[in-house]
């Protein structure tokens, strides 16, 4: 059964068709990926799914609920979390405060609770802290807890962004090139982390990645995009042996 369904999705920037009549779906509890050459439209697809770009046409459904015309914050509330290709942390805030942001949409205390420090408010603050700490431990950056995000080593910043996304208790998490800029050891750690996200939290993972070795290791399903169109999909072995894929994308790089 699929958790996310994209149907005939198109996106036009002026004369440029960034995404063209794209359809695919993501199985619940799977680790799936979207691959494609630079500028193929992968990030644009993520931006439409998460509500940052409005599709020119087409449909997106999360668990049967249409996401079209919904604000990003609303979509997050519905159970979708994301990371960004170029890290988008809250640079001056501590790791803990960064991760706490995820809990915003799962809590509800407002001005009254804040001003009078009601019992419910304190209870909620405790919960926020607890969940944040759990997510920080989960990705393994506890010792940086009180450090400003911008002062973390690059790899840890990537994990932090994942921790922050997890704190919103998503059903599905979208990772945009999570391995970009990571060294070999960090990539191995990331692979393990992504597996644990799925296995321990039962969160579906959809990621964009360029690192074929990494994708082959963890991805169960791949959708290949070129010039905004789907050119292939299937298991890693199917896709990476596909003629069109090799031609369009892998031909230049000696992978497979």
């Amino acid at each position: 059964m699929s958790i996310l369904t994209v149907t005939n999705l198109s996106l036009q920037f002026g004369g440029l068709k960034a995404v063209n009549d794209l359809s695919f779906s993501v199985e619940r509890n799977s680790i799936s990926s979207i691959i494609g050459p630079n500028g193929a439209g992968k990030t644009s697809v993520f931006n439409m799914i998460t509500g940052f770009y409005r599709p020119t046409s087409g449909g997106i459904e999360l668990d049967g609920t249409s996401l079209i015309n919904k604000k990003p914050s609303h979509i997050t509330t519905l159970g979708m979390a994301r990371t960004f290709q170029n890290l988008r942390l809250f640079p001056n805030l501590s790791v803990l405060d960064n991760v706490k942001s995820g809990m915003h949409c799962r809590t509800k205390q407002a001005v009254f609770g804040a001003l009078f420090r009601t019992k419910a408010q304190k209870e909620e603050e405790r919960l926020i802290e607890e969940v944040a700490n759990e997510c920080i431990d989960f990705v393994g950056i506890r010792k940086f807890r009180m450090r400003a995000a911008k002062n973390l080593p690059y790899g840890q910043q990537r994990y932090l962004e994942i921790a922050r996304a997890l704190a919103s208790k998503p059903k599905i998490i979208l990772l945009d090139e999570p391995a970009a800029g990571l060294n070999f050891a960090e990539k191995q750690y990331l692979i393990e982390l992504i597996r644990r996200i799925r296995d321990e939290y039962n969160i579906t993972v959809l990621m964009i990645e360029h690192d074929m070795a990494l994708i082959k290791q963890i991805s169960e399903h791949i959708t290949v995009i070129d010039y905004g169109e789907k050119i292939a999909e299937g298991t890693p072995t199917e896709v990476l042996n596909n003629e069109r894929v090799i031609e369009a994308y892998l031909g230049k790089e000696e992978v497979v």
Binding site: A81, F90, K100, Q109, L115, I128, S168
Partner: peptide
């Protein structure tokens, strides 16, 4: 008290990175 609450943190998130805040479920 506002500043050290869920509301205050949301304001700071918006200041730090509006899009990231929105992505974290904060209705900017």
């Amino acid at each position: 008290r506002l500043g050290h609450s869920r509301i205050g943190r949301a304001w700071i998130y918006i200041r730090e990175d509006e899009d990231a805040a929105e992505a974290m479920g904060i209705n900017r």
